[in-house]
Design a binder for these strands. Structure first.
Length: 633
DNA sequence: TGGCATTGTCATTAG
DNA sequence: TCCTAATGACAATGC
């Protein structure tokens, strides 16, 4: 029973705090004083931070309102307030907590006095079938909650008649069905979701929706101004037969909060859990429907915190309190939203990384001279890959990029690499045609032929083509070497050695083959080296620019700091002079600012001290200083 | 025609 | 010992 009281009290107190967040004071002691001892006495442990705040004990100080629910002590315990403020700042109209809280307050204030007066609550609650003497101010929803089949509830205040029994509650709820559903099925998401999330309520109560009452409630909710709402609700309350019980039953938020808190009273059966799940689903659908009904309303972030409050019914199988669940679920919802956005960002980043990685691969050092130079058919490449040699390249068909990948593959697959590698536009790179002309070799036959003697009669096109061949290409032709320069350069060492062994080349041919291979590789190496050098220079230039900017910024900060320090010193000096001019010595004369100064101690006390003249460095003093230094060493 | 940029080549070194 | 990458230096070439 103490556990039940604990959670009940926690929920009620937290609800009170929530109401206080919107400026509504709910006199919780008016509900509790009759049945419960001071809250600290029912505080069973450190799990409840709210109850540990003895504001109810201090409420009688300073005319009974020494500790307002808005006092900082309470703020400390309610992170939900901050969250609610944040959500409220978002301008989401889905947070009608203020409206509900106001309604509760208004119900209490319809009596002879406001909720600040406990007697008013007594008068209001006296209309119920409850004894009107003491603690009947507990809302009906609270009674419903506490009258769940629980053996422990039969003891203590509930068993003493503080709560109705189950039959009475059903009767009451049937009587209150209409006014309750008026609120429960109002146009606000809050009420729908809240009531749908209430598993403790009987079904008929939840699913009766009188349209007229719905319209009334819509009108009620449509009032933006609180003052207008105040008058309107007053009128509506009078129309509702002044049924206090029904009025209290309209305290949907209060009820919901208590029900959610009541979920901690004990383990729930599977039916309740399943219904909670359904309620959660219905809640989500309700959210969507509401969002549709409220165009332009931000459904995402603004709706989540309160939805989390509504979802408390599904999360309260644990023994957590309302406040903790509120905080945790609100944070969870917000975090989930953030995680969702973060997930999207991660996906985008991943795609960007893929793209950038692909481009980096294409633009890598190896790609410059390897893939781009030889591997790509359209790559301008080096002199061998100039326009003049493109036809040659196609004719030879064996020229490939020089890379480890190519080297690791058999030569047969060279053409496949040409097909696999997409053409890369390296037009930004500088690829001048510096192929050297070799006039003595202009008449050499094309390379495809083993010897110029086998070459048929040349035409003008072949002459132009030969003029654009590199020197090594022409030399190879002249030496009747049946391999292109690219083949010679790019073939693996083992294959190159095999070629030298199997083709019975002459010594000059072998020398030329080795030179061609060496020069070709060195050419690529030179290109890579120059590119790296340029990259290094560019990087260093950027670093220099960054450091220069940092230096300028630090210099500006230094000047600003010095200026500020000077201003402060000047003000301090003037202040010192002013103070000293007002201070008199023993003879009644003002103190000389040149001889005295003000010194502020650590304790905040300001003391007038004589200015110490700089000690003349005498020989004795120097000796003592030396001795001190020696001792330190 | 000289300056500059680019490129190829050689020599050297290190792995 | 050979191969290769890296790099400085030089020369050739084009603009």
């Amino acid at each position: 029973m103490q556990v039940a009281k604990k959670y009940f009290t926690e929920g009620l107190i937290q609800l009170t705090i929530l109401l206080s967040l919107v400026g509504v004071r709910v006199d919780i002691d008016s509900y509790l004083t009759g049945y419960y001892p001071p809250l600290t006495e029912i505080n069973l442990g450190p799990s409840s931070a709210y109850i540990q705040t003895p504001f109810h004990v201090l409420r009688d100080t300073l005319d009974g309102y020494g500790v307002h629910p808005k006092c900082p002590e309470l703020d400390y315990f309610f992170a939900s307030r901050r969250l609610l403020d944040e959500v409220r700042n978002l301008g989401s109209p889905r947070f009608h907590t203020q409206l509900n809280a106001w309604l509760v307050h208004q119900v209490s204030s319809t009596g002879p006095s406001t909720s600040d007066n406990p007697d008013a609550s007594v008068g209001l609650e006296s209309t119920d079938n409850e004894p009107a003497d003491t603690g009947e101010h507990l809302p009906v929803r609270d009674q419903e909650v506490h009258c769940q089949p629980n053996s422990e509830l039969g003891q203590g205040p509930c068993g003493a008649g503080a709560f109705l029994n189950e039959d009475e509650v059903k009767i009451k709820e049937e009587e209150e069905a209409v006014p309750l559903t008026h609120l429960a099925h109002s146009s606000t998401l809050e009420h729908e979701s809240l009531l749908e999330g209430i598993t403790m309520l009987p079904e008929p109560v939840l699913h009766h929706v009188p349209p007229a009452a719905d319209i009334d409630w819509n009108n009620l909710l449509s009032v933006a101004d609180l003052d207008d709402l105040d008058s309107l609700v007053t009128d509506r309350l009078s129309e509702l037969d002044s049924d206090i019980s029904s009025a209290i039953s309209q305290d949907v938020s209060l009820h919901d909060a208590m029900v959610t808190s009541a979920g901690a009273f004990g383990p729930t059966d599977s039916r309740t859990v399943s219904q909670r799940d359904r309620n959660l689903l219905r809640l989500e659908s309700t959210n969507s429907s509401l969002s549709d009904s409220l165009p332009g309303m931000a459904v995402g972030l603004a709706a989540l915190p309160f939805a989390s409050v509504c979802n408390l019914t599904g999360n309260l199988t644990s023994q957590s309190s309302l406040g903790s669940c509120l905080d945790e679920t609100v944070f969870e919802q917000i975090n989930q939203l953030g995680l969702g956005l973060e997930a999207i960002d991660n996906q985008l980043n991943y795609l960007e990384c893929l793209d950038s990685g692909a481009f980096e691969d294409l633009d890598s050092d190896s790609g410059l001279s390897l893939e781009s130079s030889y591997g790509c058919p359209v790559s301008p490449g080096s002199s061998e890959m100039s326009s003049s040699t493109s036809s040659y390249y196609e004719e030879e068909g064996g020229a490939t990029g020089y890379s480890s990948e190519v080297d690791s593959k058999p030569p047969k697959g060279i053409l496949d690499h040409r097909a696999i590698w997409p053409p890369v536009d390296l037009s930004e790179s500088v690829w001048h045609d510096h192929s050297y002309s070799s006039p003595p070799l202009l008449s050499m036959p094309p390379l495809r032929l083993p010897c110029k003697t086998e070459e048929p009669e040349e035409d003008s096109g072949s002459r132009l083509e030969e003029q654009e061949l590199s020197r090594d290409e022409l030399r190879a032709r002249a030496m009747c070497i049946p391999f292109s320069v690219l083949q010679i350069v790019n073939m693996p060492v083992e294959e190159f050695m095999e070629v030298l062994d199997t083709h019975s080349f002459s010594a000059d041919q072998v020398t030329l083959l080795r030179d061609i291979r060496r020069r070709g590789k060195n050419k690529l190496a030179a290109q890579n080296c120059r590119k790296r050098k340029l990259d290094a220079i560019t990087g260093l230039q950027e670093e220099v620019e960054r450091l220069q900017a940092q230096r300028d910024r630090l210099l500006r900060e230094k000047r600003l700091t010095a200026k500020t320090m000077g201003a402060v010193a000047h003000q301090f000096k003037q202040l010192t002079r002013d103070v000293l001019s007002r201070v008199r010595d023993a003879s009644g004369r003002p103190l000389n600012p040149e001889r005295f100064t003000l010194q502020c101690g650590a304790n905040g006390r300001v003391v007038v001290q004589p200015i110490r003249q700089p000690a003349v460095a005498t020989s004795a003093g120097k000796k003592t200083d030396k001795r001190k230094k020696e001792k330190k060493q």
